[in-house]
Amino acid sequence: MTTYLPKDVRDGLDAARLAELRRKNRLRVMAGGKTWPVLRLWRTGFSVESAVVPALRGLVDVYDGAEHLYQCLIVASGEEGGEMCYEFKRNTAATQTPPLDHFREPNGPVALLPR
């Protein structure tokens, strides 16, 4: 039994797989003021469509719809099956509030009242 598939069949299967990933994913990557769809996201990286997205490098932001998820420092790791894969060098979760520079007591006062 052979596992050889003609090139046009392989290309068709890859195109169908990429179309399915594009259709069902809301994730976006933003770099330099432009956004592109993310095909897959995993713990140590993500992938984008190599034919559509230019080579990314450095600091990017990852969004789920309008929600900012991560600010990441990335490096390209390789291309396979029409997907360009990137690995995180640093992956910081985005928060809605700035970080505190002191410990806030859980039962402490929220504000000071004047006398």
Rank of each mutant, 00 (worst) to 15 (best):
T92I: 05
I74M: 10
L13V: 08
T95F: 07
S77E: 10
T92F: 03
V62W: 01
A94W: 13
V29R: 14
D61L: 00
Y4A: 15
P98F: 02
L5E: 13
L69S: 06
L18D: 03
A15L: 14
V38M: 06
E87F: 03
G65H: 07
P54E: 09
E87C: 05
V29N: 14
R28Q: 11
R10G: 04
R57D: 12
S77I: 07
P106A: 13
G12P: 10
V110W: 07
E49K: 08
L113I: 14
L41V: 15
D101M: 10
E67M: 02
V53I: 08
F88H: 01
V110M: 11
E20W: 06
A76Y: 07
G45F: 03
T97K: 13
T97F: 10
H102F: 15
V48F: 07
E20N: 10
L21C: 08
W36C: 07
P109C: 09
L73M: 05
A94Q: 12
M30A: 12
E67S: 03
A111Q: 12
Y70W: 15
L13P: 02
N91G: 03
E67L: 01
P109I: 09
A55V: 10
V48E: 09
Q71E: 01
Y86A: 10
W36H: 14
L41E: 15
N91T: 02
R17Y: 08
L56P: 09
P106R: 15
D61Q: 00
L13W: 12
P99S: 13
D64R: 00
V75L: 12
A31R: 08
G108I: 01
K24A: 11
N107H: 14
V60H: 01
A15E: 13
P109F: 13
I74R: 09
A51K: 14
E80D: 11
A93S: 13
N25R: 12
A94L: 05
T92C: 01
T44C: 00
V60L: 00
Y86R: 05
G65F: 04
H68S: 02
G33T: 02
A51H: 08
E105K: 15
